[in-house]
Design a protein around this nucleic acid. Sequence first.
DNA 1: TTTGCACTGTTAAATGAATAACAAAATGGA
DNA 2: TCCATTTTGTTATTCATTTAACAGTGCAAA
Lengths: 212, 212
Amino acid sequence: MEDRFFKNIPHRTIERLSQYRRALQIYSDKGKTSIFSHQIAALLHITAVQVRRDLMLIGYSGSLRKGYDINDLITLIGELIDSPDGQKVAIFGMGDLGRAIINYFRGKREKLKIVAGFDTNPEKANHEVAGIHCYPLEKTAEIIGKEGIKIGILTVPGDQADETVRIMVEAGIKGVLNYTPTPVEVPDDVYLEEYNMISSIEKVAFYVKERQ
Amino acid sequence: MEDRFFKNIPHRTIERLSQYRRALQIYSDKGKTSIFSHQIAALLHITAVQVRRDLMLIGYSGSLRKGYDINDLITLIGELIDSPDGQKVAIFGMGDLGRAIINYFRGKREKLKIVAGFDTNPEKANHEVAGIHCYPLEKTAEIIGKEGIKIGILTVPGDQADETVRIMVEAGIKGVLNYTPTPVEVPDDVYLEEYNMISSIEKVAFYVKERQ
DNA sequence: TTTGCACTGTTAAATGAATAACAAAATGGA
DNA sequence: TCCATTTTGTTATTCATTTAACAGTGCAAA
Ligand SMILES: NC(=O)c1ccc[n+]([C@@H]2O[C@H](COP(=O)([O-])OP(=O)(O)OC[C@H]3O[C@@H](n4cnc5c(N)ncnc54)[C@H](O)[C@@H]3O)[C@@H](O)[C@H]2O)c1
Ligand SMILES: NC(=O)c1ccc[n+]([C@@H]2O[C@H](COP(=O)([O-])OP(=O)(O)OC[C@H]3O[C@@H](n4cnc5c(N)ncnc54)[C@H](O)[C@@H]3O)[C@@H](O)[C@H]2O)c1
């Protein structure tokens, strides 16, 4: 019932909720306790109407004169998008990007923790890399199963992406974030998000060119 | 006239064109010379209709029995999204992420080159970092102007993002790709793209949770 | 030939998302 | 006390994008 309710929140709204939380956190750190829709909007370069509409969809009400209570809203967004017991994340490929992500992620989100890494390089496997234990790829099924890890970030070389994601899925990973430039295949019950940095830069380059 | 024509190609199509090119390159490397719409579609997890529609919009025709000529299509996409003379890119913040991007980007795209880096850290400024010359931030206006750099990638610490982007824009940058978790402000004539890695992971985590 | 098949290319319809429009409520000041 | 102002919450409308429908075409096999 409640699940149903959450299910038909637009994908774009889900993305924005995560961004609202981040922006709200910054405001909160400055000592603010409440915020207006147009202030949130200005931070994210969207309209105030859109902010109000999103908050309406998640059933949050602000007060007419003070706007939205920052801490309440952060809590509510957390209840909606976080898992109550937290979720564990593993990194596949402990190279430059993998390490950068681990360092960046550390301590950022309480409910979402990187707990293991996997690499084929024998110099990395069975050692700590950036403070995370790195396992050899063969141990994937064992560790993923034992730890109950459901989310994997893929940062292996492009030509290893297909094979690695196959191993991940077989081991029980249900959500893959692929930073490789190689598009990969997953079964229907696995959620896949691909991010291609080159495309982002090319898009910026295209619109810069077009505007001149 | 021709510009007009390109202008009303949907933003999402522009994003996909860049991805088509990448996927086509992989196919081409395998020795293939032609490809069907449904094959391109399978690679990118979209429908064949959408591929055909996109290609229609850019005015490319395939042959009925062989599909699309891979090299022709790569060339055409290049003519559309690349600048004929190439575009130069600068990185602001030569830390873990900045270096990873430089290494990753090297030699990937002929028409899009990272040619300079900027950092406030005196140990980095005036040295080579990952094979790119790193300038102190004060030199931004001079170098950006002299080199004619129009695109900047922002990888400084979050609390430096606002100030750094101000300096970039003042120096003449017309397209910003912001990898900082801090949303930034740019004037109307500057194209801004923001990517927030935490939001991507949170989105994956959300949909994994919801499906259980 | 002719028929069936596997494609492409294009127009039409449906879906999804953002924006606009506006009613309702609380506050502070006239 | 009442009015103007400011902001929320919600429905209606517009806009963008995807998906569906289908006509057209060339090839291969009968
Ligand atoms: N560095 C960047 O900024 C950047 C940006 C976007 C995308 N990418 C992509 O991310 C991926 C990683 O980039 P990187 O710069 O970290 O490369 P890297 O070479 O530094 O790291 C790759 C790591 O994966 C390990 N590895 C190789 N095969 C493996 C396998 N089958 N299973 C597990 N681990 C394996 C290697 O030992 C190495 O540690 C690449 O696909 C790259 O194209 C990188
Ligand atoms: N590392 C990641 O995987 C990752 C992922 C997503 C986002 N980010 C974000 O990217 C940014 C950089 O991350 P990082 O891991 O490379 O951090 P880092 O600390 O390794 O690098 C930051 C670099 O910026 C330089 N710097 C500081 N102030 C500057 C200024 N005003 N102008 C120019 N240079 C300046 C520093 O000297 C340092 O070299 C951060 O905002 C981080 O949140 C990082």
